[in-house]
Design a protein around this nucleic acid. Structure first.
Length: 889
RNA sequence: GGGCGAAUAGCUCAGCUGGUUAGAGCGCCUGCCUUACACGCAGGAUGUCGGGGGUUCGAAUCCCUCUUCGCCCACCA
């Protein structure tokens, strides 16, 4: 593992072997009996049939960053992975496979079908978990679960039975969302409302007594086949006299009453509503209040059934709509037609328009579970990032509706309810274990055909994955967990329900913090999706640029509460920041390691007096970086943490420190040992700070650093603490002055087109104290970095040269003789001076304003005065220089 | 119909509790194959901080309003 570094950074050569080594060494296995405060993240279990997409990439990168950070901080971390059986989704996949053979699930039968799904899952399922390994995910794979495992299934049955016994689970005939394609009930959350352009038809229904007619408005004319009344508002004067009369339903000739009900909005449409209790939620309720007949006119796959006149039977619901409208038109009963925009429910798995359908289903009574979940949030036991997501959570809980948990599928947890088959015996058995006989009459029992909603197993994951209902060591050690990282889309599906389940069955919230991150979108801000073809395959990105590049790019582009925009059409551009940075790190490592072959002494052993200004500066910067990066990681500001380390490594370490100490690293320079010690140390610190984001490169380089033997892997090395740097404000100031001097000379050189190889002479006039100290400390470095032959310090000379005034009013003059275009220099100096004088005038106005001086805090006023003096002096120096050069006024 | 968020350089975004000569990365321009890195080095340009009003000594930052995008929720047929 510690072969010399290849000259070229090649992520594909290092990442896979490194991951295998991490696994082999078991660094990410959590010990239930170990030391340290637990830190637990439950992975949002991906569908067992899923393949990694960029959304998973982002979600799991964030989790891995957090878990690696906390692991290095000494927490006993557990990142618990698993997969979800994903009832509808998985069943759909296998049904599609069957369809290729020309078969339906009904052709093969339930048992054979379920066996087929298991076979599919066992052979191809869970590949996403292997793909997560390519990403670098430091999960504890030894604990990997599947929601249909025996253990988790046992938890599901236990919960069902307990809730049933508390009368929180009930069965009943209600209007539910039905997917006519998946042939199952859906929960409210699974029926996604989408704004759709539709139409509203105004249909005329004649009164039975022939005394007139009444117009109803509907968006679904086909449901008129199931109408059992027309409702108006009881106080609507237009219809007051009609209440109690009957209408003759066109096309069918059924007599239906006109009723009064508060649910009707007199202002909408005609103020009269057709009531179809079997096909609409509101109508169902109206129907109950008025004891109306519930006429179901649709088959499960949404074709007209035998309750309708023969000519409509067998028609698809949308065909039927056309037919009905045509017949109304023909009969002169279509009053008018208007465009209408409204929300239509769609199946979240297949997109089919959902049908409100009357059927017998199992429900969980949610109110009693929601109350403690709301309280937990209000009392601060759960917090959301970004905070505003908490309002969403609370609002949903406040308006919670009962949860329809039965699904008419074959793939999933079978509902643990059996009914007696004996005539006259109505015994229902709800049991943890399969009963053999009816407990009342001893007759044979038959299990409910339905399975449970997938989320009925995933809401238990925070404890079921740890062995619940047994009181296992894992459960004791790792419940409650710590942080949950997921997308806002499943806040209600999963997050809120886990909180409810955790409180109900464990008496504690399952995690304290919920971090809801944004969505990955394309440059047109469209969500990435297969159907749009605008997706990014993370595996392709890993293949081309490496997992570290992918991770860095995602982390640095993801601020709290925002979406991540990437361009699928230009992966090169999208992932350049990460790739460039990884490459830069590699080369820093190559350079540094090349000079560390003889080893390095611990920086603590270096006598204070041997530290040069640059050494002190980089140690001070290291300390600042440790502090800020740590704080940002703690606050979930991962992009800021990454940026802080990026800046330290690239700008501070590579661009300045390493350039500055190069001569000391070469050969047997007296300061060499110190430089090696400092460089090795700060690089070590920075690699550790970056490891959560870029685990592979950092590990590869870190292992080769002298002094890394303290830990077997950087991923279990201690997190840097402030004392690993050095507080040294003076070094920050003085090295800053050095940088300013070098920068000024470089600027002037570029301005005058001095050839890169040529040296120049420089006069530093009226140096500030900091500049004076910087020159005294390291004039060699200044001369080398700015390619200066002779560096003079003194009073401003009146010689022709390029000049520049630093913020601290030090004047930098590069006498360039013929190279200087005097006229151009005069203009440049003049412009600079003008700019400063404008600032001075504004500042004078500000400081002359009595309101400002009277009301602003003294500290601010002092600061503003200082600024004014600085600009004034800079401008004056520039004017002097112009005069010295003989510039015209 | 309610609720929420966003609008800052050509692009993607920082800018946390109001006081910076408004920043980063990518892209762009100029010059460099300087023996760690051209996926690089040095230098540079670019913004009436979406429009309008207000609060304040002072606003990219707070308030109102308008415009444009986006998200969530909702049984007005």
């Amino acid at each position: 593992m510690t072969a010399p570094l290849a000259p070229q950074y090649d992520p594909s050569a290092i990442e896979a072997p490194l991951y295998a080594w991490w696994q082999e060494r078991g660094f990410y296995h959590a010990d239930a009996h170990g030391e340290g405060e637990p830190y637990v993240i439950q992975i949002p279990p991906p569908n067992v049939t899923a393949v990694l997409h960029v959304g998973h990439g982002l979600n799991n990168t964030i989790q891995d960053v957090l878990i690696r950070f906390e692991r290095m901080r000494g927490r006993r971390t557990l990142w618990l992975p698993g997969t979800d059986h994903a009832g509808i989704a998985t069943q759909n996949v296998v049904e599609k496979l069957l369809a290729k053979e020309g078969l339906t699930r009904f052709d093969v039968g339930r048992d054979a079908f379920v066996a087929r799904v298991w076979e599919f899952v066992n052979t191809t399922g869970g590949q996403i978990l292997d793909q997560l390994k390519a990403l670098g995910a430091s999960c504890d794979w030894s604990r990997t679960y599947f929601t249909l495992d025996e253990g988790l299934s046992r938890a599901v049955r236990e919960v069902f039975v307990r809730l049933y016994e508390q009368e929180l689970i009930y069965r009943g005939k209600y209007i539910i969302n039905w997917c006519p394609r998946c042939l199952t009930a859906l929960s409210n959350e699974e029926a996604e409302k989408e704004e759709t352009d539709g139409q509203i038809w105004h249909l005329r229904y004649p009164l039975a007594d022939g005394s007139g007619s009444l117009v109803v408005a509907t968006t679904r004319p086909e449901t008129m086949l199931g109408d059992s009344a027309v409702a108006v508002h009881p106080d609507d004067p237009r219809y007051a006299l009609l209440i109690g009369k009957h209408l003759r339903l066109p096309l069918i000739d059924r007599l239906i009453p006109i009723i009064g009900d508060d649910a009707v909005d007199p202002a909408f449409g005609s103020g009269a509503v057709k009531v179809t209790p079997a096909h609409d939620q509101t109508d169902f309720e109206i129907g109950k209040r008025h004891e109306l007949e519930q006429i179901d006119i649709l088959t499960p796959d949404a074709h007209i059934n035998d309750n309708a006149p023969e000519r409509f039977r067998g028609l698809d619901r949308f065909e039927a709509r056309k037919r009905i409208v045509a017949e109304f038109t023909a009969a002169g009963l279509l009053e008018k037609l208007e465009p209408h925009r409204h929300a239509v429910g769609h199946c979240y798995r297949c997109g089919t328009v959902v049908e409100p359908r009357l059927s017998d289903q199992w429900f969980v009574k949610m109110q009693p579970l929601a109350t403690p979940a709301l309280a937990a949030y209000r009392e601060g036991r759960i917090s959301f990032i970004p905070e505003r997501q908490g309002d969403n959570y609370a609002m949903w809980l406040e308006n919670i509706r009962d949860w329809c948990i039965s699904r008419q599928l074959w793939w999933g947890h079978r509902i643990p309810v059996w009914s007696c088959q004996t005539d006259g015996c109505t015994t229902t058995i709800v049991a943890r274990d399969v009963p053999t006989r009816c407990t009342a009459c001893g007759g044979t029992v038959v299990q409910d055909e339905d399975v449970l909603d997938t989320w009925f197993s995933s809401w238990l994951v925070p404890f079921s994955s740890l062995g619940w209902p047994d009181n296992t060591a894992d459960l004791k050690a790792f419940y409650p967990g710590t942080t949950l990282v997921t997308a806002p889309e499943i806040l209600f599906f999963w997050v809120a329900r886990m909180i409810m389940a955790g409180l109900e069955f464990q008496g504690e919230v399952p995690f304290g913090t919920v971090y809801l991150h944004g969505t990955v979108r394309d440059t047109q801000h469209r969500k990435m999706s297969k159907s749009l073809g605008n997706g990014i395959d993370p595996l392709e990105v890993i293949d081309r640029f490496g997992a570290d590049a992918l991770r860095y790019t995602m982390v640095s582009g993801m601020a709290v509460g925002t979406d991540l925009i990437l361009d699928p059409a230009d992966l090169e551009a999208s992932f350049a920041p990460g790739r460039n940075f990884a490459n830069k790190l590699w080369n820093i490592g190559r350079f540094l390691l090349g000079h560390l072959e003889a080893g390095a002494v611990p920086v603590g052993d270096v006598p204070e007096r041997e530290l040069t200004l640059a050494d002190r500066w980089i140690l001070a910067r290291a300390q600042e970086t440790i502090t800020t990066a740590t704080l940002h990681y703690e606050r979930f500001r991962l992009n800021d943490a990454a940026a802080a380390v990026y800046h330290f490594l690239w700008s501070d370490l590579a661009d300045w420190y390493l350039e500055q100490v190069k001569p000391r690293l070469y050969g047997n320079h007296p300061g060499g040992e110190t430089a090696r010690a400092v460089a090795a140390h700060v690089f070590n610190v920075a690699l550790r700070l970056l490891h959560p984001v870029m685990p592979f490169v950092t590990e590869t380089l870190w292992k080769r650093l002298p002094g890394s033997a303290e830990a077997a892997s950087i991923s279990v090395a201690p997190w840097p603490v402030a004392a690993d740097g050095r507080q040294d404000p003076a070094a920050l100031i003085d090295f800053g002055a050095l940088q300013a001097v070098v920068g000024a000379v470089r600027m002037l050189r570029a301005e005058y087109g001095v050839s890169p190889g040529a040296t120049v002479n420089v006069t530093v006039a009226d140096p500030s104290d900091a500049v004076r100290r910087a020159i005294a400390a390291d004039s060699d470095a200044i001369r080398r970095l700015a390619k200066i032959a002779q560096l003079d310090v003194g009073l401003a000379p009146s010689e022709a040269g390029g000049a520049m005034v630093l913020e601290d009013q030090t004047m930098i003059i590069v006498p360039l003789g013929d190279l200087v275009d005097l006229e151009k220099e005069c203009v440049r100096l003049g412009n600079e001076a003008d700019k400063l004088e404008q600032l001075v005038r504004n500042q004078e106005l500000k400081l002359g304003n009595e309101n400002f001086v009277g009301r602003a805090p003294p500290a601010i006023i002092a600061k503003e005065r200082e600024k004014l003096e600085g600009w004034r002096a800079q401008a004056a120096t520039l004017r002097e220089q112009r005069k010295a050069l003989g510039c015209p006024d």
